[in-house]
Simulated assay, not measured.
Amino acid sequence: MKTGGSETQFVTFALGSEVFAVPVSVVREILDHEEVFRIPSGPAYLLGLRNVRGQGVPVIDLRLRLGLSKTEPTPHTRVLVVDVPVAGRVLTLGLVADRVFEVAAFTSDQIETAPDIGVAWNSDYIEGVVRRDASFAVIISLARLLTETEVVALAATQGKAQAA
């Protein structure tokens, strides 16, 4: 294993059989899954709002946002509450994950760029890929996961929940 480069800690989690990671620095807390307050006419990936310490937090089904099948909650399902710096503000979101594994440290030289598969595909949200034993962990750029329009809509949803 390579040991050079600066080290960053990541929270690793599963969506199906795939492993993903986000920087520890953006994770506020990890909660058990519970039903949320549904928001009519929201995008399919927006499950609704959840009360997190007095704050209305939009909860996203990360599987749906990444084009996978809808999350079927199990006893292992968790919600990562993250603070995402986007468009000059910090947006607090809940991301539903099938399972949260651990905090893992990756060095900068372990992180590879998204693979070139020879065709156009939406890999903008991939910050990098790390080899882990016989598999990989995909590091997600939360700021690039959502479009600017989606950020504005989610911020408005969160703002309305705060005002209520």
Score class of each variant (00 low, 15 high):
26 V>E: 11
69 S>R: 07
128 G>Q: 02
164 A>D: 11
52 V>L: 06
36 V>P: 03
73 P>C: 00
123 S>G: 15
80 L>H: 05
112 E>V: 09
22 V>R: 06
103 V>K: 01
158 Q>R: 14
23 P>E: 15
149 T>V: 14
82 V>T: 07
77 T>W: 04
160 K>G: 14
75 P>I: 13
16 G>T: 05
134 A>Y: 12
26 V>W: 09
111 I>Y: 01
48 G>C: 06
27 V>I: 00
62 L>Y: 09
19 V>S: 12
143 A>T: 14
82 V>D: 00
38 R>W: 09
119 V>R: 10
78 R>F: 04
70 K>D: 11
157 T>K: 04
137 A>Y: 04
58 P>C: 06
21 A>N: 01
53 R>K: 15
124 D>Q: 11
143 A>M: 02
2 K>H: 12
14 A>K: 12
121 W>Y: 15
50 R>I: 14
31 L>V: 07
141 S>M: 05
51 N>K: 04
61 D>H: 00
89 R>L: 13
47 L>H: 11
48 G>M: 06
121 W>N: 05
99 R>I: 06
76 H>Y: 10
70 K>G: 08
108 S>Q: 02
4 G>K: 14
92 T>G: 11
8 T>N: 10
80 L>T: 09
117 I>R: 06
151 V>G: 01
53 R>E: 10
83 D>C: 04
129 V>Q: 03
147 T>V: 02
19 V>C: 10
49 L>V: 03
160 K>N: 13
24 V>G: 00
44 A>N: 11
111 I>F: 00
108 S>K: 09
123 S>N: 15
29 E>L: 01
101 F>K: 07
36 V>Q: 02
79 V>T: 09
158 Q>Y: 11
71 T>W: 00
4 G>T: 14
82 V>Y: 01
13 F>Q: 04
101 F>W: 06
66 L>V: 08
118 G>H: 01
83 D>W: 07
55 Q>I: 12
13 F>K: 05
10 F>T: 06
111 I>N: 08
117 I>K: 01
53 R>I: 08
153 A>I: 03
145 L>A: 05
160 K>R: 14
62 L>F: 08
5 G>Q: 03
95 L>D: 09
1 M>T: 14
72 E>S: 14
43 P>M: 06
146 L>G: 07
111 I>A: 02
151 V>W: 03
69 S>F: 13
43 P>T: 01
54 G>Q: 04
25 S>A: 13
141 S>A: 12
59 V>G: 08
99 R>F: 10
99 R>H: 13
79 V>C: 00
144 R>M: 01
155 A>I: 08
147 T>Y: 00
30 I>Y: 00
17 S>I: 11
138 V>L: 09
98 D>P: 07
140 I>R: 06
55 Q>T: 14
147 T>N: 07
106 F>Y: 05
68 L>K: 02
6 S>Q: 12
51 N>G: 02
31 L>Y: 03
144 R>P: 09
116 D>M: 09
67 G>A: 12
